[in-house]
Design a protein around this nucleic acid. Sequence first.
DNA 1: TTTCTGTTCGCTCATATGAGCACGACACGC
DNA 2: GCGTGTCGTGCTCATATGAGCGAACAGAAA
Lengths: 310, 310
Amino acid sequence: MAATPPQELIQLAYVSKRYFKDGRTRVQIAEEMGLSRFKVARLIQKALDTGVVKIQIEVPGPIDVDLSLELQEKFQLRTALVVVTAVDTDEQIRSALGQVTADLLSETVREDEVVGLSAGRTLIEMSQQIHAVAHCDVVQLTGVADPLRERGMMAVNRFSALSGGELYSLPAPLVATDDDAAAVMRRQPAMQRTLKRMSAVTKAVVTIGSWPHGSLLHDSLVPSGEAAALIAQGVVAEIGTTLLSAGGKIIDTLDNRTIGMTAAELQAVPEVIAVGGGQHKLSAVRAVLASQLPSTLVTDAATARALLRS
Amino acid sequence: MAATPPQELIQLAYVSKRYFKDGRTRVQIAEEMGLSRFKVARLIQKALDTGVVKIQIEVPGPIDVDLSLELQEKFQLRTALVVVTAVDTDEQIRSALGQVTADLLSETVREDEVVGLSAGRTLIEMSQQIHAVAHCDVVQLTGVADPLRERGMMAVNRFSALSGGELYSLPAPLVATDDDAAAVMRRQPAMQRTLKRMSAVTKAVVTIGSWPHGSLLHDSLVPSGEAAALIAQGVVAEIGTTLLSAGGKIIDTLDNRTIGMTAAELQAVPEVIAVGGGQHKLSAVRAVLASQLPSTLVTDAATARALLRS
DNA sequence: TTTCTGTTCGCTCATATGAGCACGACACGC
DNA sequence: GCGTGTCGTGCTCATATGAGCGAACAGAAA
């Protein structure tokens, strides 16, 4: 095909500018230039076809829209958010996921919702990045993992302070030494208040833990040597206090000893936002998606691509 | 203003993609997404406003559209073509001007027009670059300048060969030694045929000569020592065989001795394309524009910018 | 020449679109 | 409690737009 000659290029460019930049209608441009509106329409079409006018869609910020939409489609999610990071260290990824989750919550939390937060480093990150959120109650969904120590309740504390609503905290370990200990703790009035509130949660934000590496629950069990048995049972992931097999099946072995929202309660939450990504979390994220528990996923680009390949 | 949150960004990007890339109508998108068409319209508007959708207009090839349009506007030209060159040597500029002029003529010359060409290096360049043109007669508008020697008639010869029409050549010097010599030459039948055809020219392509440096006519007069007197009379430019003052006034001192299209005939041509640019031609181009003779100008970016500044 | 074919143009008419308006939700101040 | 301003929303209706059509023309083939 022949190159478009210069005089016509000028005309294409001029018409395009009037139309796209200046927002005139085709009719106005036609009158102005003494052409028929059809001619103008064809010029605009030609400008589009020949590449004189380029339309690019690009979101500001660290979201990869294409990946997000593909994930959303493939896994039947209400929303998927794929975060792009400059470097792929776990540190960076966690920070970026936290930022995006913070924005997501600022955006979606409505007045007087009941927001549930699990404990985890990514959500601590989130709580540091969030700057505004509607007035809402905050429910701590899981007990505090030993490795986090005093930082364990940071996320709910900060978030609740910001939201100005009621805080339902869970001052207890993530997992108790045995069933009885768990039962005792659950009976404490402070606990009861929070546990009862679980069923009112409208939006749960849970981090994805990867077994065996990258799970706070796993790490809490290692000292007592119990982790191996669960791995043998096929646990590859946790979401909140719920353990999952590679196929996304719920593994309830530990349920009586964990303190936090139950799998059944989680399933009843209208909006479950699962957050997780990074090098070694791929199969955990896959399991979580297979479980159908989350309606929204926040993850990183590398993980997203790997999920789409499989 | 707050940054647009991620979930909304996804929506903006998705709607934009459907609309701009996939060409769906707003109504279709609205149905597909379960929104009102007004909502979709507002999302698209927001995408435009926030810069999620960027529309850039950029012509392929060496034309600067903005400068061209500004020139066109400022000097009331039918068309202005501003050529962008990688390097600003006269050599490069001449080649680029030739190329663009070639494309321009390929585009605009209609069947059975009568095209007039002046002699000059830029038009020789043009004749080498042009590959197709409608069938038309070609009239040589000026005699041959001594410095060009045998290349003087190259442009008309090549152009005419390509067009397949009649060639009206002017095998004579650009300027004769005196009025009588000019009259004698003009009376030759071959000349008469061409000179009579001048009034039929529908499209004249003339190069802009700059006095004192960059003019074939000037250089032809230097040996006989006559150039100085004309410069003293204020000649700063020539277009074809017509001399111009800085204000664009026609200086007719030499008219009886030059062989070629007269100023009056040039004024009568419906479309006069003036071609010229390069370092030292600025004031000549300015004079030519002031003369109101050309309806189209082909020049380089540096000259265009200088013209717009003044 | 005639005929065929492809291109460009401007038309009609159904549909899409924009401007402006009215309504309801909500937050704020008295 | 009650205005009152500001949103976000979807409406109406006049206008802009796209799809598809036939006329006009040019170049190629017969």
